[in-house]
Simulated scan of single mutants.
Amino acid sequence: MSTIGDLGEFGLIARVTARFPQTDDVILGPGDDAAVVRADDRRVVATTDLLVEGRHFRRDWSGARDVGHKAAAQNLSDIAAMGARPTALLLGFAAPGDLPAEWADGFAEGLSAECAAAGAAVVGGDVVRADAVTIAITALGDLGGRAPVRRDGARPGDAVAVIGDLGLSAAGFALLRAGAVEPGPCLDAHLRPAPPYAEGPRAAEFGATAMLDVSDGLVQDLGHIAEASGVAVELDGAALRPDPALERAVERLAGLGVATRGPLDLMLAGGEDHALAATFPAVGGVPEGWTRIGSVTAGSGLALDGEPLSAAGWDHFA
Rank of each mutant, 00 (worst) to 15 (best):
H224C: 09
H224Y: 08
H224V: 10
I225H: 01
I225K: 00
I225T: 01
A226W: 07
A226R: 11
A226F: 04
A226V: 05
A226I: 06
E227H: 08
E227L: 14
A228I: 09
A228R: 14
A228Y: 09
A228M: 11
A228L: 14
S229H: 04
S229E: 02
S229D: 01
G230L: 09
G230C: 05
G230M: 09
G230N: 03
G230T: 03
V231F: 03
V231D: 02
A232D: 02
A232N: 03
V233H: 05
V233C: 02
V233E: 07
V233D: 01
E234K: 12
E234R: 15
L235R: 14
L235P: 14
D236G: 01
D236Y: 13
D236C: 04
D236L: 13
G237D: 01
G237L: 07
G237M: 05
A238R: 13
A239K: 04
A239N: 00
L240Q: 03
R241S: 05
R241H: 08
P242N: 06
D243H: 08
P244H: 04
P244V: 00
P244K: 04
A245G: 10
A245D: 13
A245C: 12
A245M: 12
A245L: 12
A245H: 11
L246S: 00
L246C: 01
E247C: 12
R248D: 15
R248I: 13
A249F: 08
V250G: 01
V250W: 14
V250D: 08
V250C: 11
E251A: 12
E251V: 14
L253E: 11
L253V: 15
